[in-house]
Simulated scan of single mutants.
Amino acid sequence: MDTIKQANRDIKSLQPIAQKACELFLNECKKKNIPIFITETHRSQARQDYLYEQGRTRQGQIVTWTRSSNHTGGYAWDIAVNPPHELYDAKIIAKAGEVAKELGIEWGGTWKSSPDTPHFQVDKNWKAPATENWKTQAIKQVCKQHNLEVNTWLGKCEEYLTVGEFFGIINKIIQ
């Protein structure tokens, strides 16, 4: 296998923080029915140079604007769109870009000088966005079902540490 000419699609070849970001990104896209797949993850500097030469010193269409990419450090991945859609359907990729924004993942589609819409990346300090804990989600759901003020009960939720005590407060809400 000539690794310079072949894309690596293995998420496990990314840095651990980028693996987590990429997996979260793919899961969120799946939840929102955004039909995408990974086309490339980590690449060697030799492959990056090879891609950079395409359309410049070697035949073919230009596919990258830089010799220095976060792909080589294992912090970036590229996507495409599943059939039957166009491979780089702009509307679908833009939806994936919105998901990335929600997750604090940088999307190449927002770059001013050289937009790269299939490209997504994180840095070594990326953190997954905080999600509500199950108690908060439950309180909000119960309050909504009973047309009650959520904020009145959210603070009380944190006072109850055990599952039994937590469900005690749920019972107080619905009485």
Rank of each mutant, 00 (worst) to 15 (best):
M1C: 10
I4F: 04
Q6D: 12
A7W: 05
R9M: 11
R9L: 05
S13T: 15
S13R: 02
K20P: 05
C22G: 09
C22V: 04
E23M: 11
E23K: 13
E28P: 02
K30P: 04
K30Q: 15
F37I: 08
T39P: 14
E40S: 15
R43F: 11
Q45R: 13
Q45L: 15
D49A: 14
Y52E: 07
E53T: 07
E53D: 15
G55K: 12
T57K: 14
T57R: 15
Q59C: 09
I62A: 11
V63A: 07
T64C: 11
T66A: 08
R67D: 03
S68V: 08
S68D: 10
S69G: 10
Y75W: 03
A76I: 00
W77R: 04
D78I: 04
N82A: 10
P83N: 02
P84K: 02
P84A: 02
Y88G: 00
K91A: 11
K95L: 08
K95Q: 13
G97T: 06
G97F: 04
V99Q: 05
V99P: 09
A100G: 14
K101R: 13
K101S: 11
E102L: 14
L103Y: 05
I105G: 07
W107G: 07
W107M: 10
G109Y: 01
K112G: 06
D116P: 03
D116L: 13
F120W: 10
V122N: 10
D123F: 15
N125L: 13
W126H: 14
P129V: 06
T131A: 08
W134H: 04
Q137K: 14
A138V: 10
A138D: 02
I139F: 01
I139T: 04
K140R: 10
Q141E: 05
C143M: 09
K144W: 06
K144D: 04
Q145L: 15
N147L: 10
L148A: 13
E149Y: 12
E149L: 14
V150M: 07
K156L: 07
E159C: 01
T162R: 05
E165S: 03
F167T: 06
N171T: 05
K172M: 12
K172A: 12
I174T: 13
I174M: 10
